[in-house]
Amino acid sequence: MLTIALSKGRLAEKAIVLLENAGYDCTAAKDESRKLILEDEKAGLRFIMAKPADVPTYVEYGAADIGFVGKDTLLEEGRDLYEVADLGFGKCRMCVAGPVDLKDGKLDLIPNKRIATKYPNITRAYFEGVKKESVEIIKLNGSIELAPLIGLADCIVDIVESGRTLKENGLDVIETVADISARVVVNRVSMKMKSSEIKPMIEKIKEQIALL
C-alpha cells in the first residue's frame, strides 16, 4: 500500500489525471466527499488530501510515501526529501515585484528594504544568500500586492503566473527568484523499503511527463 499526499485543489486534479494515464486506478481519489483519507485497497493506493504547505511535512515524516507539491512549497519548507520528478505543470515564477519605477536596478538602491511575502524563508535565502544584503521581512498571508501600495513594504516576493494582478495594481516583476512547477517528492525511507512499488510508479510518471 502506497500513501500519496496531494495538495488540495487544481494540483490534485492534475496529479490524479496523470496517475490515471500512468495506469493507476484513482477512483478513490475522485470521491467528491469531504473525506480526508481516500483508500482503494484493490489498487493498493491511499490518498490523503492535505493543505499544500503540509505535503512536504507528511512525506518527510513518512506519513505519506509520495507527495505531489509545488516547488514554491518545497523551497519554503526546506524539508529533507527526494525530489524525483518535475511534472511540468503548475508553472509559474517566484518573483520580486514592486512599483514599476523600481525596475532597471532602482530596487538595489534602497537600503534595508522592507519586503512583504508569504514566503519568508525563500525571501531570506534570496536576499541574504544571492543578493548579499540585509532586508526586513514582513510575513503576510494573502493579497501581498497590497503591501507596497499601502506603504507597508517597498516590494514583495510572491508567485507570479500571468502578472495580471500585479499590472492591475500598478506593480510589475522586478526580478525572478526561481522557476516554479509541480514536483513529485518521495520519503527517503519509503524509497528503500517500498522501492518495488515506488520505482515503477516514478518511471511511469516520468513517461507521462514526457508525453505532456
Binding site: 513518512g62 520519503n187 527517503r188 525511507v189 519509503s190 528503500k192
Partner: peptide
C-alpha cells in the same frame, strides 16, 4: 539503515 514504519533512517 532503514526499516518500516519510521520515515527516518
Amino acid at each position: 539503515g532503514y526499516t518500516y514504519e519510521v520515515g527516518f533512517p
